[in-house]
Design a binder for these strands. Sequence first.
DNA 1: TGTACATCAGTGAACGCGCGTTCACTGATGTAC
DNA 2: TGTACATCAGTGAACGCGCGTTCACTGATGTAC
Lengths: 205, 205
Amino acid sequence: MSKRGYHHGNLRQALVEAALALIEAKGPTGFTLSEAAKQAGVTPAAVYRHFAGRDDLIAEAARQGYEIFTDLMQYAYDGGQPSAMAAFEATGRAYLAFARKHPGHYIAMFESGISVNRTADLAAAALRARSVLEKAAQELSQHIPPEKRPPPAMFSAHIWALSHGVVELFARGSPGAQSPYPPEDLLESGIGIYLRGLGLLPPDS
Amino acid sequence: MSKRGYHHGNLRQALVEAALALIEAKGPTGFTLSEAAKQAGVTPAAVYRHFAGRDDLIAEAARQGYEIFTDLMQYAYDGGQPSAMAAFEATGRAYLAFARKHPGHYIAMFESGISVNRTADLAAAALRARSVLEKAAQELSQHIPPEKRPPPAMFSAHIWALSHGVVELFARGSPGAQSPYPPEDLLESGIGIYLRGLGLLPPDS
DNA sequence: TGTACATCAGTGAACGCGCGTTCACTGATGTAC
DNA sequence: TGTACATCAGTGAACGCGCGTTCACTGATGTAC
């Protein structure tokens, strides 16, 4: 476990951080193992002491991203409780904030093309992130009359999809290059309308 | 305009189609100009008679994708009219169907990392796609009481984002590798809840 | 405290590869007369 | 209808490049005695 006292100090983590910086700067395509090694002050071959190869490095970056992501989501949800609106708007804002503050992690997780099942560790971290959102949805859905209550997993999938779509289309590069509204406003209003449709908010608040 | 009678026949379009097949098969990263040329039965250098380079080829594939996409959206919306629910569920389904039936185009448009502004043609095609959705939202929002009516551009951005998020997270590779529900169901129920929140559907239908 | 030794993180050279792009060319096609 | 010519789509060889990965090695570190 202890990495102190090695030649480099902690090359493994330095490589992850170099990878994140490169992914952030050049996109997942522009990232190369060799350049990450150079940026960490090390020969490309040294990388193989710590990772099975290029994709494993990205997978580790993504895994660390899921850890941060999970914490942020949990924290945001807790802070908004017990109001449904506040709790889910906070998670939506946290989703956006995560994409903004940790673009390297975000790209590694969602845009790098690596499968979430590439590594057991990565799959577990992604599952944990999903669990947090589903648990939140489950708690909130207690307030919906049982007969019109959607399954919590569906509820949370809707929120996740809406957040993800807003980030991808309007907060990052490609299509909506000129976003019609600030992504935050878009997401907040969207979540508000959605929750109203669920009966979690009064019809005209 | 006429390409008939050339050595190849219509190399330009053959290259686009080879590119689409490769993007579909290997992802945007795996696509190479050289292999597209080979698949079209032509030397890599021949590509430069028709495209400025690799990225211009992808841009053209994306542009054609936006044309198809626009038509599908328009057709789906028209078919669902005048019911708000039917019209927007049809566009949602069309979005999913597009991603499924034209994965190469979809990837070129949304996952290849090329900017929508790389080419004037491409930007125009993307704008047209957006206009269709916004016009649809504008028409439907007539049915919402003016004082609680969101701007149509916001309305359509929500639908687009939700559709896009569902496709990205649950209908394609990465994170929700095992989707909790069929993407179609997820999207249909999400749009239903959203429209109910807007007052476009009765509170308990 | 001092010395001999084992470990193993990182080196450096080398590899084969396929990439995107360039260039002068060739030869089939379409056209003018 | 037949011939000479201009066009220009596609050729083929070549380029420089940086990639990911391998391998036998070296030398700093930590440990045993």
